[in-house]
Design a protein around this nucleic acid. Structure first.
Lengths: 119, 119
DNA sequence: TCCGTGTGCAACTCTGGAGTTGCACATGAA
DNA sequence: TTCATGTGCAACTCCAGAGTTGCACACGGA
C-alpha cells in the first residue's frame, strides 16, 4: 500500500527537485555543501570554476526546491543542505516505478487472457 | 549498509534520468505511455498539444536515459515504459539523502564536542 | 502495381536558463 | 568614523534544447 502514485502536495516539490537536480553544476554544489555542512556562496564559489553570482543563482534555485536552507549570520548568508525534499522525491520515483510495473503486469495478463479467448 | 553513496556505473544513468525527467512534457509523455502500455509516437502525439516530431525527440531522450524501450513492428515503432533506470535513480536519491543526514549528524557531534572542550 | 499512412531526416525559429560583469549597499573590524 | 570585504541587484551575452515545418522514404493493404 505504500505504492500509490504520489500525493498531490508532492507534485510541486517533485517538479522543483527534478528541475534543480537536472543541472550538473547544482549537483556538484550540493556535494560541496554537504561536505562543508554549512557554507557561504563566496566560499563555495572558490571551489567551483564559476563566479559567485552564478553560485548565488544556483543556490536560489536549490532553496526554492527545498534542497537547501539559508541562515543570515551578520553580513554573511550560510547555506546548508536539506534532505526532506530529496527524500520525498526519491519516494515518489520509487512509487512511480512500482506503478509502471503493476500496469505492465496487468496489461500482460489481459493480453494473455485475450489470446486464450481467441486462439 | 544500503546507504552507500552510489555505484559508479549508476552515475551516467542517474544523470540521464534526471535530465530526462526535468521536462514536464516528458513526464506527461511517460504517464501516457504507461497508461497505454505500448504506443507509437503518432498515437501519443494525438494526446498531447505538440507535434509528432517533438514527441519523437522526447522519446529519443527518454530511450537514451533508459526510461523507455522501443520495438519496431512492421512500419511502426512501439514504445513502452521501463522502470529499471527510474528505480535505480530513486535508490540513488534515497541513499544521497541518507548520506546528507549522516554528515549533518556527524558535524553536529563534532560541534558539540568542540563546544564542551572550550566553554 | 499503386495508394495511403507512419517514420526519419534536416533546417529553422525562439525562448529560457547559465554565466558574466559592474556597481551599489551593508556590516564587522580597526 | 573609515576601510575592507561579503551581498544584492540589474543588465547583458550566449547557447542548448523545445518545438515547428517540409519533404523524402518505407511498408502494408487493395
Amino acid at each position: 500500500m505504500d505504492a500509490k502514485p504520489a500525493e498531490p502536495t508532492d507534485a510541486a516539490v517533485v517538479d522543483g527537485v527534478l528541475s534543480a537536480l537536472a543541472d550538473p553544476t547544482r549537483r556538484r554544489l550540493l556535494d560541496l555543501l554537504s561536505a562543508y555542512g554549512q557554507a557561504t556562496a563566496t566560499t563555495v564559489a572558490d571551489g567551483l570554476p564559476i563566479s559567485r553570482q552564478a553560485v548565488v543563482k544556483h543556490l536560489t534555485v536549490l532553496e526554492a526546491a527545498g534542497l537547501v536552507d539559508s541562515v543570515k549570520v551578520g553580513r554573511e548568508v550560510r547555506y546548508s543542505v536539506r534532505s526532506e525534499a530529496l527524500d520525498a522525491t526519491a519516494r515518489w520515483m520509487a512509487s512511480l516505478a512500482a506503478a509502471w510495473d503493476r500496469r505492465l503486469a496487468k496489461l500482460k495478463r489481459l493480453a494473455e487472457a485475450a489470446e486464450q479467448a481467441q486462439p
